[in-house]
Design a protein around this nucleic acid. Structure first.
Lengths: 207, 207, 207, 207
DNA sequence: TATGAATGAGGGTTCATTCAT
DNA sequence: AATGAATGAACCCTCATTCAT
């Protein structure tokens, strides 16, 4: 009992620091977030952070791993599931928007420090990114094979279009620190992204 | 005469430092690019940088201003010009892709340090970003008014879709340091973006 | 009974830590040997070290005391014993070489951290060193008085010569972490030291 | 002119820091001597030390290199010179004693941080030490070959005896921070070392 | 203009020591 | 006795910025 309760405590403190790091890195960016900021935010002493994480880089990696783990799990679920492309893409969109609601800092960091930052980009981090692109591209390509998506445009390009749309919605919300108000707004955004991606922005003549 | 030639010299040296800063910030990011790196890259002593720019922040602002100036000029030209939406959007896409070809560092910095970075974001920098969004949105909204774009989706959302596509194409190229090979590839990318944005990714039944 | 068995246990744990400290200090030096290293080496938690030793300095002192105690006991035995100088010096040499065989860490620490280190030198530690020198000098001086050693050179200088030889043999072995292989090598070394110290390095004419 | 005078200034400041480092490392040892101590001792600001030396380790290496350079030069001179063994050994002794008079900190550091410290011992530093031993041994071995030194004891052991004597004289002086008073004391010490090393400590019967 | 020496405020990390359990 | 979480004072090093020349 003692051991497991201590283990739980250890986990808790780790999570405490983890969340404080999320907040501070979101607020100041990885570079400007000082270890002392994180410690203060977590309400603990300076040195204790180093009890739980080897160094700043490791703490950052822990955050990245959590992000990628969640995303890859979702992509695996989606890939394996028996959905058509529209549903799969819909799930992906939902995942991003849901995560943005439940863990805005996480998404913020993904957008600002991972998705677009060459600065923090070590090669293995780039690999994660490529894997993410590739998995999404696989979904798109499968849609093309099943004749659900146009084939006159490379799957890769369609992927850019799709993820670009998702990211920019998120980016803008991140940039202005916008909150998604309730489920309705989220659904409207999700629907818009999917709609335009699938059917385009052009006014149909027959409308 | 002397004066003006001195002025030209001053301009030249300023430009020299400016370009060196572009390269270094692209390579290392704003935070990790040291003033001494920039000076070395420019082939001058690092004290001299301070003759031409008050400090690192100012140097960065100079870069941002040049970027925004170019972009706003383009948007102004496009807005005032007598084009339909498709052409206007096409011009915007071309501007980004052309600039990426002629000044890849500039676009790189826009993507990594401006577009997505909350870290470097002072409020006046955010204002520039909002203005950029607003101008693009105006183009889109005008397209809706002229019945060329669907109206069941907010102009803002369509704007996100459009810019998201552009940005993600650029981002990916930036991320892997990809060069655009010749005009054909550029045209194919431009066409893809516009095509999908306007007509969607869905395979048409009657095709 | 309980008490004494507890006392024995206490002694045991103390000895455990002591030996671990010996090994780690030998390996890393006093400064670089962390309390946590010592605890890990001893197989206990690092808080526990502080139950047995007040602090790192005290732990170090415990080591020094053990060293000096052994050495002073030997010197006392030798001084009081009814040996001639040659035998006395021979015993001193043997003591060092024997200890190097049985407790190489101890000798290592003596050489690297005590004998030559002004860094770890508090004044009372210097006193020990002076006492050691003085006791050895007494042996030498007695040899001079008994007309067994030359008197045209100060006893102090002869002492330096003698101890210098012993120390350098040990130092070199310590430096390259050399093991003394068997009793023969030890005897040869001991003989060499004594021989050269007493009779010099010069080739005798009559040889 | 300007350049060379600047170069001289640079050298001067470097030497200033070098000497301050010598003093502080002598006083506190390499580990306890802080970079800030050295800067203060040199009368300059903290960061300037890093203008002249990359880091603490480099500063230490600069000291070591100066020491070994001097010593190896002496040994080369001695080896190549047309002296007999006695004179050669005499020159080596003189070098140590002279250096101790002119640069006591240097010798102190050699004794405390190099000669006996396994802590600061990287492999290339050990190599220097071995080279030093080997060069001295070569002198001794040559003496044996020319029938000037006894051959019944390994050259290596004789070398230990010789260097041990020198080092212990120096060590003791270093330990008690003793100054060599004038040339006479130095000569007496030098004579004692050589005398005892060559002819031994034993009282000659025929005296 | 131009140089690069000089400054010093940080910030990351280590580790002896204390303390609650 | 025993654990290891918690603390925080040091200490190394970086780098934007200033300044004498």
């Amino acid at each position: 009992m003692k051991k497991s309760s201590a283990a739980i405590k250890k986990r808790d403190k780790e999570a405490l620091i983890f969340r404080a790091a999320l907040r501070m890195i979101k607020e100041k960016g990885f570079h400007k977030a000082r270890m002392s900021d994180i410690a203060r935010e977590a309400g603990i002493s300076y040195g204790l952070v180093y009890h739980y994480f080897n160094n700043k880089e490791d703490l950052f990696d822990a955050i990245l791993n959590r992000w990628w783990d969640g995303l890859f799990r979702l992509l695996a679920d989606v890939s394996e599931g028996d959905y058509d492309v529209h549903q799969k893409l819909s799930h992906i969109i939902d995942y991003f928007l849901d995560t943005y609601q439940s863990e805005p800092e996480m998404v913020n960091i993904f957008i600002t420090e991972i998705s677009r930052s060459t600065t923090n980009l070590t090669s293995y981090r780039l690999d994660y990114f490529k894997k993410f692109m590739a998995l999404t591209e696989a979904v798109i390509a499968e849609g093309q094979k099943r004749n659900l998506l146009r084939t006159d445009i490379k799957a890769r390009y369609l992927t850019y279009m799709f993820l670009g749309a998702v990211e920019t919605f998120l980016s803008t919300m991140v940039l202005v620190d916008q909150k998604i108000k309730g489920g309705t707004q989220k659904e409207r955004i999700a629907k818009s992204i999917l709609e335009v991606f699938l059917n385009g922005a052009k006014k149909q003549k027959t409308n």
